[in-house]
C-alpha cells in the first residue's frame, strides 16, 4: 500500500513531535524518577571566605574598640596629670 503524501507528512510530523518531546523531557523524567542532584544548596556560612570575613570583621571591631579605649585613657591621664595633687 502506498501512503498518500498528506498521510506521510502527517506521520512524519507526528513522529518528529514525539521524538522532540521525548528528547526534551527524558532527562527531566529520569532526574525526577531517581534524583541525583545534591540540592538544596548549602548556605555559605562555613566557607573559608565567610570564616575569613567574620574573623576580619571581629578583629577590626575589637581593634577599633581598643583604639578608642586607649585614646580615652590617655585623654584622662593627660587631664589628671595637670591637676594639682589634692592630697598634698
Amino acid at each position: 500500500m502506498i501512503l498518500s503524501p498528506t498521510l506521510t507528512t502527517f506521520i512524519t510530523l507526528l513522529f518528529g513531535v514525539i521524538t522532540f518531546v521525548l528528547t526534551m523531557f527524558l532527562p527531566a523524567l529520569l532526574e525526577l524518577k531517581k534524583p541525583r542532584d545534591a540540592g538544596p544548596r548549602i548556605i555559605t556560612e562555613n566557607s573559608p571566605t565567610c570564616k575569613m570575613w567574620n574573623q576580619l570583621s571581629i578583629s577590626i571591631a575589637d581593634m577599633e574598640e581598643n583604639v578608642l579605649k586607649q585614646a580615652f585613657t590617655s585623654e584622662i591621664t593627660n587631664v589628671l596629670s595637670v591637676l594639682p595633687n589634692l592630697e598634698t
Binding site: M24, F25, P27, A28, L30, E31, L32, P35, R36, D37, A38, G39, R41
Partner: peptide
C-alpha cells in the same frame, strides 16, 4: 554557577 549541573536536567519542565 551553584555547581548544580544535575538540576539543569529539570529545566525543560
Amino acid at each position: 554557577l551553584d555547581g548544580r549541573t544535575r538540576a539543569q536536567w529539570l529545566i525543560p519542565l
